[in-house]
Design a protein around this nucleic acid. Sequence first.
DNA 1: GTCGTGATAGCCT
DNA 2: GGCTATCACGACG
Length: 214
Amino acid sequence: MDACESSRFESTARRGELRATLPRSFYERPTLVVARELLGKILVHDSAAGTASGRIVETEAYVGPDDLACHASRGRTPRTDVMFGPPGRAYIYFIYGMYYCLNAVTEGEGYPAAVLIRAIEPLTGIDLMRARRHKTRRDRELANGPGKLCLALSIDRDLNRADLTSGPLRIEDDGSPRPRVETSPRIGVGYAGEWAAKPWRFTVKGSTFVSKRA
DNA sequence: GTCGTGATAGCCT
DNA sequence: GGCTATCACGACG
């Protein structure tokens, strides 16, 4: 083993020791902070077919009752109820009659906010993702969008309200350094007036696994 | 690579 | 009945 290999091994081992599921306190903070800090963390889903995971490279913040792009700005309904509950749970909604989108609920109980997970860089279970996404040709397109990553990880309405701090769907910290972050306006929220322009989309600088270039 | 468009169903006026 | 925190496909180049 040469020096480079050895260093890589130690780095991996150190990461292995530090790997930990994010605690509820991670999510119980301002949504813009959580959205930024979720970049680089690892989204994991243990399903009956096997485990698949990927590094989060793109998020968006949906910040409470005044944010007209946030579903909860229309009030507490059966759909948005989970956003009013405790942080660290999954808010999964069905969109365009065909797709699911995954969010992590943030802030204190009673304040409806969440972070949309928009893209991951596949890490493990890549063959499983390819099987679930057989129409796609390139691996960088397996999960470079909110609907795509739910297909690749087999995330659907059954996991709505799931606890992300323990259980089959979770987000882990592997101890890797914080990535450089870029911001841009959120995608597809042009209806939200002045809220549409807010730079509340966060991407890992230079990642080729984001849904589109900023 | 970019652009336009159809698919499809739950949500809320 | 209109809209939607999307995606894949075909046309074009």
